[in-house]
């Protein structure tokens, strides 16, 4: 059985935010909603200091707390591990948003799809893309499952100029992601939360 997952190589990521932009372009998320984000911070003290980047997205956890607390069944996990939301079932209670330790659930505020980025003057692009979303519901990264089902990679992976994002089947020992995890030291975010994320990070260089 396939288990989709992602490996993000922090030795390679240059913090260009292309993933965030590609996600916006592909999914057309409403204002202030980013499924894919890049955290930036510094480590060290001048002159031995440097910028660090931590790209984040939904971890598509093996033990997703967002699915557990959903009262309607709108939040669900596919057999291949992708966690998604059925927009027509979600009542907008935001329990899932509260339960996610990574803040990867996003509430579409009522009125936000009519307002768009230009205060009500929706672009053609917005008119097409916002059709997918429902106001008053919670939306999230679904690993671009429509693309994945067609044999394509998620948009953030496809666009990454540094090839820092690698997508694949964690259950297949021959997949690129499995090989990378075998050959490199990796970690997941907030392992103590018990969520078992399927997004792994290859440790940044400490030199």
């Amino acid at each position: 059985m396939t288990r989709w997952g992602m490996v993000i190589d922090l030795q390679t990521c240059v913090g260009c935010h292309s993933c965030s932009a590609a996600c916006k372009a592909t999914n057309g998320t409403p204002p202030d909603i980013f499924f894919s984000r890049v955290h930036e911070f510094e480590s060290g003290v001048y002159p031995k200091a440097r910028r660090e980047f931590l790209p984040v997205l939904c971890n598509h956890c093996q033990n997703p707390p967002c699915v557990e607390v959903c009262p309607t069944g709108a939040s669900y996990q596919r057999e291949d591990g992708i966690v998604a939301v059925k927009a027509d079932v979600c009542i907008g209670c935001r329990s899932c948003a509260l339960a996610c330790p990574y803040d990867h659930r996003h509430y579409v505020e009522p009125g936000s799809l009519k307002k768009g980025y230009f205060d009500g003057d929706l672009t053609l692009y917005e008119l097409v893309k916002y059709d997918r979303w429902t106001e008053g519901t919670v939306i999230k990264c679904d690993f671009c499952m429509d693309r994945v089902d067609e044999g394509l990679k998620p948009a953030c992976v496809e666009t990454c100029p540094a090839e820092a994002r690698i997508f694949g089947d964690l259950a297949d020992p021959k997949s690129d992601v499995s090989k990378l995890l075998r050959e490199n030291e990796s970690f997941t975010l907030l392992p103590e939360a018990g969520t078992k994320p399927c997004v792994y990070y290859i440790k940044p260089s400490t030199e």
């Binding site: 240059v14 913090g15 935010h17 965030s20 932009a21 372009a25 204002p31 980013f34 911070f41 980025y117």
Partner: peptide, 23 residues
């Protein structure tokens, strides 16, 4: 990295990214 000169500020996505960028 995600902006070109000042005309990127006409793109609301990039402006939004900038608002959430520490630098």
């Amino acid at each position: 990295t995600f902006k070109t000169a000042t005309f990127s500020n006409f793109n609301p996505w990039l402006v939004e990214l900038g608002r959430n960028h520490p630098l």
